[in-house]
């Protein structure tokens, strides 16, 4: 099967701490995969490894069947043009206005004229429910939810083929979280993009995912369609989706 993104036996350790311990995962073109798992299970490291921000110690990562695991930064330009990413804290550039943030990829990477890029940026802001008057503000003048929307507008500004969402609803109230989930679904549907979302939020999984996977101790321990997540027959998945303290996943909590 031809995968848009394919990871095979990916390992990554920081010193003695093993974070990814043989991750194997495939995402088909146009598919929305949601990766769940507790904090520190390696979800963000997996995304950063695909993006080339972290180099795996072992294993293979392919984008459109092209090996990118050890590709030098200078040779990643055409690969990186396929990506958009919404960061957990939005990661907007403080020194730039909102429209400049959204248009950044268009101006700096694609060399588009500022006036044209601004028009597209305002259109993308409208797409995520923000009015044009927000365009001239700076990130520090926006609420967390609005920053996430701007981050989403920036992620989709260049019409990328692949979009990553890093905990898109963390830190938001449930209503704003649902708004962001809806926007992600709409934007992804419009673009026909392939997406990987990492989250702890089960409402995101139920809304965004075509397929879901669970990462535990650096390994994918379950991978299947969203509809099967409630009947996975996997004790780890069951414990996680129901948020139970008792089960095979034991949190290291120091008790008095």
């Amino acid at each position: 099967m031809a995968y848009k993104i394919k990871l095979e036996n990916v390992h990554k350790a920081f010193g003695r701490k093993v974070v990814l311990d043989g991750v194997t995962l495939g995402v088909e073109k146009g598919e929305s995969l949601v990766v769940i798992g507790g904090s520190g299970t390696g979800k963000s490291v997996m995304l950063k490894s695909i993006l080339g921000l972290i180099t795996p110690d072992q294993g293979s990562i392919k984008i459109d069947d092209r090996e990118v695991t050890h590709l030098a930064a200078t040779k990643r330009k055409d690969i990186m043009s396929k990506f958009g990413m919404l960061f957990q804290g939005a990661a907007l550039f403080d020194s730039l206005s909102i429209w400049q943030n959204v248009a950044f990829g268009l101006i700096e990477s694609q060399g588009m004229k500022k006036t044209d890029a601004k028009e597209i940026a305002i259109e993308k802001l409208r797409r995520v429910g923000l009015t044009p008057d927000v365009a001239e503000l700076f990130p520090s003048e926006l609420s967390g939810g609005m920053q996430k929307r701007v981050g989403l507008a920036r992620a989709i500004a260049t019409d990328p083929e692949i979009i990553f969402f890093d905990e898109p609803t963390t830190g938001l109230d449930p209503i704003m979280a649902d708004v962001i989930n809806d926007l992600i679904v709409e934007c992804v549907k419009d673009l026909g993009a392939t997406t990987i979302t990492i989250t702890h939020d089960m409402s995101s999984v139920r809304k965004i995912a075509d397929k879901a996977a669970m990462l535990f101790k650096g390994k994918i321990i379950w991978h299947g369609p969203r509809s099967e997540i409630d009947h996975s027959n996997n004790d780890y998945v069951d414990q996680f989706i129901h948020g139970r303290a008792d089960g095979p996943i034991q949190m290291e909590v120091l008790k008095p």
Binding site: L51, L53, A73, M80, M85, L92, F104, G105, E108, S109
Partner: peptide, 15 residues
């Protein structure tokens, strides 16, 4: 910029 992932964002924006 590093701790708020703005530098990572630059890379994902192909810069």
């Amino acid at each position: 910029m590093r701790v708020t992932e703005q530098i990572d964002a630059l890379v994902t924006l192909n810069t």
